[in-house]
Simulated assay, not measured.
Amino acid sequence: MGEIRSYSLDPDTKTKLKMCLFKNVQNVYIIRNNIVKGVWNCTAIKPSLVVDPLQIAVAANRAVVAEKAGNMVTRTVYGEILYNLSLSKNISQSLSKFGVEKDNVLLMCFLVNEKDESENIISQIQGELCPISDLHKFTNMKEVKSVYKLNTIKSDFDLLDIIVSRMVTKNFVTY
């Protein structure tokens, strides 16, 4: 049985992150279109590039803080999440690298403050809701190491710490 997991973000933003994992998704094209056109307020992330939900929580927290401060790099807070996951300062590259195109496994993310549209959107996803604890089954470590420029690191032990550090310092350091 699947689950929808919630994380509290920066208290000043009064926002929660809701995350759910789907596999065998049949209507990826519709989902992607609804997100790109702004019909749905959410983002769909490639689980193959995520080692832990904390990685998404950090990117989402940075996005809502940037939105509140009025200094987002992208046009939407959901685009900002994808941008924050990437080491690239190129917006298009970040969105295409972490956003879903044809994948049939999706990690859906919603930001919830006053209103919560997640249940309505989740009900329209034609796929199998999985436990977030299954995320590691869809992670492609070779791809993760390539995207985060970690090919020289042999162990996967501290990978999450290194990835999060690189995500939050991308504005100061070139990798």
Rank of each mutant, 00 (worst) to 15 (best):
S133P: 09
R166L: 08
N113T: 13
S118W: 01
I4K: 01
L111E: 05
I81D: 06
G70F: 00
E114Q: 12
V147S: 03
A57C: 06
M1Y: 13
L21F: 04
D156L: 07
Y29V: 14
T15W: 02
I163R: 04
P53G: 03
R5M: 10
L111N: 07
Y148Q: 09
I30L: 15
E80D: 10
I4W: 00
G70C: 05
S155F: 04
R5N: 11
F22G: 06
S6R: 15
S155H: 06
F110N: 06
E117G: 06
D12W: 00
V164H: 11
N27W: 01
L17K: 01
E101A: 06
L160T: 08
D161S: 15
G38F: 08
G38T: 01
V164E: 08
V112P: 02
T152W: 12
G127D: 08
I163M: 03
A66D: 12
S118Y: 01
S6I: 13
K46Y: 00
G2Y: 09
E117W: 03
L9D: 01
K23F: 12
K170G: 04
P53D: 09
E3M: 06
A66M: 02
K102T: 07
G38L: 05
V164R: 05
L160Q: 13
W40G: 03
L87A: 07
F22N: 05
N34W: 07
Y83M: 07
Q26S: 15
V65M: 10
M19T: 15
C109L: 10
N151T: 12
S118E: 01
M108E: 01
P47W: 03
M1I: 14
M19E: 09
F138M: 10
T174D: 15
N90H: 06
R62P: 05
N41M: 14
K46P: 00
T76Y: 03
G2D: 09
H136Q: 12
K16Y: 05
D52H: 11
N61H: 05
Q26I: 14
P11S: 10
D103V: 00
V112T: 04
